[in-house]
Each structure stands twice: as structure tokens, then as C-alpha cells.
């Protein structure tokens, strides 16, 4: 119970700070909107295949995650609140709180990206359940990897564009699976049953990444 209360406190603190400034959320949404519009303008009227649609959707989500979520620990360093957190809450609870916060941000990104993209590219979604499942499960794995790496870059001296460099190589297995699953959801038909294997892979990947991240987090977090 204590563990849940501590994680909840960290999450609550982040949510409240976010509600005050809405910096991370606004930045993420603006990034998603502008990159989607760029893609739409660049493509023009041309019809885009389902495979390209799901690939572009996930590339946009991945890039916005790598840009927006990196702040979660950097902000603590800037505000000088790291020591306070270290003293009050055990590392795993900090990690859990931040992980859930990042996941919620990603869900917002997914939602906006999907709606705008469907509008701009005339997406036809055959299987909503599969698409939502792949977006949500993919976001869990993405949030797990990003949260640990955000803690890592908060320790680095030049924080700038480090997160995408560290993040993308790790996410290639996830990207391949989610793109396939979303593509099956867009195409419908026979591919849907085959996408179950992909969903399992995403689930397994997220589980392994989060487990490894929890185990390794203390080494990054404690001095």
C-alpha cells in the first residue's frame, strides 16, 4: 500500500505541475500537429498505402515522445527538487510515478495524432479494437524505455538532443511490431488474426523493458 501511495504522490505532483503550466502537453501536441501537417503537405493529394500510414503515424509518435518526454527528469534537476525526491520517496516509486505520467502524456499524443492523421490522410480504420490495443500497448513500452533514458540524460552535461540518439536504437523491435499491428488494423481482413502475435511481442517487450528499467533505475537515480 505504501508503495502505491508513494507512486501516486509522485504522479499527483507531476500532474499538478503540468496542469499549472501545461508546458509538456502543449509542446507535445504542437509538435504532433505541426509534424502531421508537414507530412500531409509533403504528400499532397496522393493516396497513401496502409503500410505507409501506420509507419508515418508511429514515426510521428516516436519523435514526439523522444522530444517531449525527455523533460521529466531534466525539469527536476532544473528546479533543484532531485534531492527532495530522493530523500522522501524510494527510487522505484519515483520511477512508477514518472512512468505513469509519461504514459498519460503519450495517450494524449496517440489520441491527437490518430484523429488528425485520420482526417488528413483519409484513413479508413477497419478494426478499432486492434488499433487502440496496439497504440496503448505500444505506448506502455515506449513510456518504459523513455522514462529510464530521461533519467539518464538528466545526468549528462549536454542534455540537448541526446534522448532521440539513445532511444531509437532500442525501440526498433517495438517499432517493427506496432507498425505491423496497426497496419493489420487499418487493412482488416485476414491480417487481424496474425496481428495477435505482434500484440504478444509488444506486451512482452513492454514487460521486459519496464522490468529492466526498474532494476536499473536506482543506479541512475542515486548518487
Amino acid at each position: 500500500m505504501n508503495w502505491i501511495r508513494g507512486s501516486w504522490a509522485v504522479l499527483q505532483k507531476d500532474l499538478r505541475l503540468e496542469m499549472r503550466s501545461r508546458y509538456a502537453l502543449n509542446m507535445l501536441l504542437m509538435f504532433v500537429l505541426s509534424s502531421l501537417l508537414l507530412i500531409a503537405f509533403a504528400i499532397g493529394q496522393e493516396a497513401v498505402s496502409e503500410r505507409m500510414q501506420s509507419a508515418l503515424l508511429w514515426v510521428v509518435i516516436l519523435f514526439s515522445a523522444s522530444i517531449g518526454l525527455g523533460r521529466s527528469f531534466v525539469a527536476e534537476e532544473e528546479r533543484g527538487t532531485v534531492l527532495l525526491l530522493q530523500l522522501n520517496v524510494p527510487g522505484s516509486q519515483v520511477f512508477a510515478g514518472k512512468l505513469i505520467f509519461n504514459f498519460l502524456l503519450l495517450v494524449a499524443v496517440d489520441l491527437v495524432a490518430l484523429l488528425v492523421f485520420a482526417l488528413l490522410l483519409n484513413m479508413v480504420i477497419e478494426n478499432w479494437g486492434l488499433l487502440v490495443a496496439s497504440l496503448l500497448l505500444g505506448s506502455v513500452g515506449l513510456a518504459g524505455a523513455t522514462t529510464l533514458l530521461a533519467a539518464i540524460i538528466a545526468r549528462a552535461s549536454n542534455k540537448g538532443p541526446l534522448l532521440p540518439v539513445l532511444l531509437f536504437p532500442l525501440l526498433i523491435p517495438l517499432l517493427l511490431s506496432v507498425v505491423r499491428a496497426s497496419r493489420a488494423a487499418l487493412e482488416g481482413g485476414l491480417g487481424v488474426s496474425g496481428a495477435m502475435g505482434d500484440l504478444q511481442t509488444i506486451l512482452l517487450f513492454s514487460g521486459v523493458v519496464i522490468t529492466a528499467a526498474v532494476l536499473l533505475f536506482d543506479y541512475v537515480w542515486q548518487d
Partner: peptide, 12 residues
């Protein structure tokens, strides 16, 4: 930490 974290994802 980064090296080990990467080593857990590549087997996928």
C-alpha cells in the same frame, strides 16, 4: 546502465 538496458532489448 545504458549498455545493459540495450542488451535486454536486442534479443527481441
Amino acid at each position: 546502465v545504458y549498455n545493459l538496458f540495450a542488451a535486454t532489448t536486442t534479443p527481441f
